[in-house]
Design a protein around this nucleic acid. Structure first.
Lengths: 337, 337
DNA sequence: CGCGTTGATGTAACCGGTTACATCCGGCTC
DNA sequence: GAGCCGGATGTAACCGGTTACATCAACGCG
């Protein structure tokens, strides 16, 4: 691994000149530049990122803070993979690397400091936060410390922070109007965990559309789940016990919708003849499970690319963080309605 | 961001002593150690990883090489997320970070060098390779360069390399014996793309079990897919045209199995009454799609933790890489058989 | 008492880059 | 011809750690 001094020596110039060839080629003369490039290629020189980071305090790495909630180890939003793919390739295109941070392990350390310290130790340029909605103090510490960060599916804001979310309310509204158009008058919904924002927003949109259509939404027709399959199953069982029974249900997440469908089938009812179902997310299963789940699509790739762009504008020294992005949601109609 | 010299000055010791407090606490006296730790906490000192890496040439980062095949952008094995979760948490537990490497973007660079250069620039300690089986020369270059690496689902070997695979042959065998036990005598299979190793191994195991049972496997009862859903659908259509029709089919991947099930349903046949189906992988859909897909489970978490362990033993300076690991496969019986 | 040993600490070189500032030189203007 | 300008390059300090080696005091021992 030859160093910059080696290249300088071999080509008979100073280290500063070699450095310039790679960082500001325009200021060095044509001849010298080519000479240096030739010897660099010859000896297989490549700049050492650590040294570079040490000197410039820019690491060209974006930190990924993810899965911070120990109570739910291995949290996996079904989107995660799609988002990650998009994020990674958008960053790669700009020469940025993605560092999945392990929280700082120092014993006896205040938990809130763990991510912040990992970020600072590595001189990470910016941070992307994918969290399950819990307002983890370790994550909040990042905001306070003025680290440029962009949060996904989470309404973080701050002088150095922005966020990307789906149009959850719009999606809830889409679901409601679709069901109303199909002639349903008695709707119910399975929401996400109440404290989380996506859950609240989807419900609000859904409710608004009903109100506008002059339809009621009884308290008993709103049941909370936790976004996972089993909770959808359980919630649906409660809804099936209602009298009169709702003729359509909107589940604020596809996993819960699938659970609900299972409960409906087990009760000997047909979808959509007896009960129509609309989900939210459009995960892979939605298209595969018969009769096909009508659902509100989130733009997973959009999350990734928008996050990458937001990070990059912040890195390029924008005085204020870019405005939050709201990604449009659309309805995909399948057999369940 | 206070530096080590700041801490040294404030506590009236030399920088070497401060460094020792963090790297070799046992050699510094109890009193000094506590003094230094106190001032460090007071001024919020944290060691700069870049400086440290520069000096020691160990970065405490493991590189992740993934999705190297441009012809299939966003390659996503359904396991990826599970593996990644396990890998990341196993590494985190040992204070290692995971760097998702972007290939070196230098224009005019030999493609084979792109990953190797990214690895070397960042002084990454080791590399985990998750690839789709194509023997990408950019990945092979890592092996040649003696970077410690562990490949997943890929039989890479070398003086500094090891790999983790599932017991594919055993899994194929499991599928076959299960179907035979269920009374089937005319079996067919949808394989993965022939050049890939998992495809070949699963087929071999399947075939062996048939041979041992004295059952034939006609060439026309072996159809190749590409591990994705549509190929399973198309392959199944060809199998349905056979006369006599096979009564059971083993798809070497769940996505293909789901595609096959779709083709079977569309042909007006019932599963498992008319045709039984066994898959491989045990992805989420397998349990959700009616009547439930019997499938061979791979140990996704095992991939992640085994990879982490292999990397760590190599980092701890083992002379030879750990022996390749083969993860056991098991059969999960559901409604499709 | 002199000497080797051991434990705690300090000194300073080194890792491999970046960059502010200085220097040099040829060409232009007046 | 003096003075100025600007482009190309060199010098050297600096980023923040690690570590080989030196130093020194205290101790045990013959």
């Amino acid at each position: 691994m030859s160093s910059i001094r080696e290249v300088a020596r071999r080509s008979g110039v100073s280290v500063a000149t070699v450095s310039r060839v790679f960082n500001a080629p325009e200021v060095v003369s044509q001849r010298t530049r080519q000479l240096v490039l030739a010897t660099a290629a010859e000896v297989g020189y490549l700049p050492n990122e650590s040294a570079r980071t040490l000197a410039t305090k820019k690491s060209h790495m974006v930190g990924l803070v993810w899965d911070t909630d120990h109570r739910r180890p291995g949290w996996r939003h079904p989107f995660f993979q799609d988002i990650l793919v998009a994020l990674k390739s958008a960053l790669s295109a700009h020469g940025l690397h993605l560092l999945m941070l392990a929280p700082d392990q120092t014993p006896g350390l205040d938990d809130r400091q763990r991510f912040l310290r990992a970020v600072q130790r590595h001189s990470v340029d910016g941070v992307v936060i994918i969290d399950n909605g819990s307002r983890d103090p370790a994550v909040l510490a990042l905001v306070d410390a003025a680290v440029p960060c962009v949060a996904l599916d989470l309404r973080f804001t701050g002088p150095t922070c922005t966020h990307i979310t789906s149009d959850n309310a719009g999606g809830g509204r889409l679901a409601a109007t679709h069901l109303i158009e199909r002639g349903h008058r008695h709707l119910a919904t399975i929401t996400g965990p109440p404290p989380t924002l996506p859950a609240a927003e989807r419900l609000a949109g859904f409710r608004d559309a009903l109100t506008e259509a002059g339809l009621p939404l009884a308290d008993d027709d709103v049941v909370a789940g936790d976004f996972y399959l089993d909770s959808g199953y359980a919630a649906m069982q409660r809804l099936l016990a209602r009298d009169p029974r709702p003729t359509a249900v909107f589940a604020a997440g596809d996993e819960m919708a699938v659970g609900a469908m299972k409960a409906i089938h087990e009760a000997g009812l047909r979808i959509p003849a007896d009960i129509a179902v609309v989900g939210f997310d459009d995960i892979e299963v939605a298209a595969l499970i018969p009769p096909g789940l009508t659902t509100v699509t989130q733009d997973k790739t959009g999350f990734g690319t928008a996050a990458a762009e937001a990070v990059m504008t912040m890195l390029h020294g924008a005085a204020t963080p870019p405005a939050p992005t709201t990604l449009p949601t659309t309805l995909v109609v399948r057999g369940s309605t």
